[in-house]
């Protein structure tokens, strides 16, 4: 059997694709911001003196990292609605993303914090810095600079994983693709186009993270060497 590609009939859908791509980006940016906050707090919690808090943060990280994202989505989305809490789909999708990426971020940030020599903290103590100041200036800033490549790599992976939220009918890029293919009957072409769009999004995101890194880490910009 011979198959003739027909990409032309998808042309009318490109505003939809664009809308889906923008929603994917939007979800990713929100998830990364909140995921970073959760990840950092969780990494701090795991280092802290409170045993129960450290155990709780550790359990969260391990559970998320050792179960599929799709199961987490179903658990949270269907679970919450069965408990009577009906979130808008966008909010629910972003919530699952935050929950997921927060754990991966926590693990990466923790690895970064482990590279901080105890002498750095003693020096900061001896200078009279308070504990929050030490955490911010002496532990977190260099840690984040050090793990920036793995952190942003994880964020790009999260962007790609967000396609799974189409399974709870989020109208992001994959969700759009699903409706386009059922309308146009050009399933194969639709998903090839969408694969290309994801690839472009991934490249754009990497570029954006690179430029952002240059902007917020002057040392990296000036010396060009890893910390």
């Amino acid at each position: 059997m011979k198959y003739t590609f027909d990409f032309a009939s998808l042309q009318e859908y490109w505003p939809e694709f664009l809308r889906g791509a923008l929603m994917t980006l939007e979800m990713t940016v929100i998830a990364c911001v909140f995921g970073l906050v959760i990840g950092v707090l969780c990494a701090i919690g795991r280092r802290g003196k409170r045993k129960w808090l450290a155990a709780l943060c550790g359990a969260y990280v391990e559970v998320v990292r050792n179960t599929p994202y799709l199961i987490q989505i179903f658990f949270i989305f269907f679970g919450l609605s069965s408990a009577g809490l009906r979130l808008p789909i966008f909010a629910a999708a972003v919530l699952t993303m935050v929950f997921n990426v927060g754990a991966y971020t926590a693990e990466i940030v923790r690895a970064g914090m482990d590279t901080i020599h105890p002498g750095q903290i003693e020096a900061a103590e001896a200078l009279g810095l308070s504990v929050p100041q030490i955490y911010w200036d002496v532990i977190l800033r260099p840690s984040l600079e050090r793990v920036y490549p793995s952190l942003t790599g994880q964020f790009v992976l999260m962007m790609l994983s967000s396609s799974v939220t189409s399974q709870i009918s989020a109208e992001e890029l994959t969700g759009v693709a699903n409706s386009v293919q059922s309308e146009s009957f050009r399933s194969f072409e639709t998903f090839i186009v969408v694969a290309g769009l994801y690839f472009v999004l991934a490249m754009l995101l990497k570029l954006a993270f690179h430029l952002f890194g240059q902007a917020i880490f002057p040392r990296r910009r000036r010396l060009g060497t890893p910390l």
Partner: peptide, 21 residues
Amino acid sequence: SYNLFPHLTVEENITLAPRRV
């Protein structure tokens, strides 16, 4: 072991505590 902060310039190393504290 000096314990200078590697991610900060000399100026920032010196002025960190005066600025913060």
